[in-house]
Simulated assay, not measured.
Amino acid sequence: MARSLLGFLPWIAYAVVATSDEWRYGAILGLVIAVGVIVIDRRAGRTWDQMVIEVSAAAFFLPITVISFVSPDSPLMPYGPALVNAWLALTAWGSLAVRRPFTLGIARRTTPPEVWRTPLFLRVNVVITMVWGAAFTVAAVALAVLLHEAPHATAAVVAVKILSFAVPAVFTVRYPKAVAARHLRPAGHTA
């Protein structure tokens, strides 16, 4: 799980460092971390499908970094947290649209190869990716509304940011265990 969360480090760093006054540092840090994690992962033999979130981070932070320097007062600046979640939602839903849930590559890091091609493995990852996509979508909308209507509601913004990662992360840990327990239960056993 800790290794899987490393892919979210660029997003977390941006969320912590970027402020409404100075989003450039968060954008640069997110980009540097994303590229660094990609380089480390590739050197460790990770395949591209195991780095969807990392590649998505680089693809997001590169233009955001450029925009933050070219136009530091861009009207996008106050909506950085909403944009992050919208991009992550697009990544999750896009991976489902091409029938390659972004969680597949991550799950393969900790799952035996003989399980990878089973319909259940794919189904579990579709459900997990849908939960991440839903969390990011709800957070993007909530943050956009909050940042527009109550730009100084820092506690609410922080709560949405935390929940948009914590809820699906907990689900990601628990759901496969629940599915495995259900499918490994002896025949005729009810609970």
Score class of each variant (00 low, 15 high):
P75G: 10
T91S: 07
A156S: 12
V160S: 12
L147E: 02
A135G: 11
L6E: 03
T47K: 04
L163R: 02
P176F: 15
V160F: 07
R3I: 14
L143I: 14
A169Q: 06
A139V: 01
T110H: 06
T172W: 07
A142D: 10
F171M: 13
V55M: 07
W132S: 06
A135M: 13
T129Y: 06
V35R: 03
A181V: 02
I33T: 00
R174L: 09
W93T: 03
F60G: 04
P10E: 05
H152T: 03
I67F: 05
A166R: 10
V39A: 01
P10A: 06
A134W: 03
R24P: 04
I12Q: 10
A34K: 11
A89G: 02
S164H: 03
R42N: 07
P151D: 05
A18S: 06
V160A: 04
W48C: 01
A178M: 01
R123A: 15
A140D: 04
I64Y: 07
L120Y: 08
V98P: 07
G80F: 10
R182C: 14
A97M: 09
D73F: 05
F60N: 06
I106E: 15
A144G: 09
H148C: 06
P81G: 03
V138N: 06
T19Q: 15
V158F: 15
V167E: 11
L76H: 04
A159G: 11
V157D: 11
R100I: 03
M130H: 15
R117Y: 10
N125H: 12
V17S: 14
T47D: 00
M130D: 04
V170F: 13
A156M: 12
A156I: 12
G80Y: 09
K161Q: 08
R46E: 00
R174T: 04
E22H: 14
V37A: 02
Y14D: 14
G94Y: 00
G94P: 07
S74Q: 07
S164M: 05
T47F: 01
G133M: 10
R108D: 13
W48Q: 03
W132D: 03
L122K: 08
D73R: 13
G36L: 01
F60I: 09
A107S: 10
T110S: 02
A2E: 00
F171T: 07
T172D: 13
V157I: 14
A89C: 12
V70M: 14
A2W: 01
S95R: 12
V126P: 08
F61S: 12
R46M: 01
T137R: 00
K177Q: 09
G94T: 01
A180D: 06
I33V: 01
W48A: 01
L96D: 15
A159P: 08
F69I: 13
F136K: 03
A57R: 09
A44K: 09
R24L: 02
G36E: 00
V160D: 05
F165G: 09
A13E: 08
Y79G: 11
V127G: 13
T91C: 00
A44P: 06
H183E: 01
V55C: 05
P119G: 13
M1D: 12
Y25F: 05
V52I: 08
V145C: 04
V98A: 07
L5M: 12
I40Y: 11
V126S: 06
R123T: 12
R182V: 05
L31E: 05
G30M: 01
V127K: 13
R123E: 15
L163I: 10
V167S: 05
V16G: 10
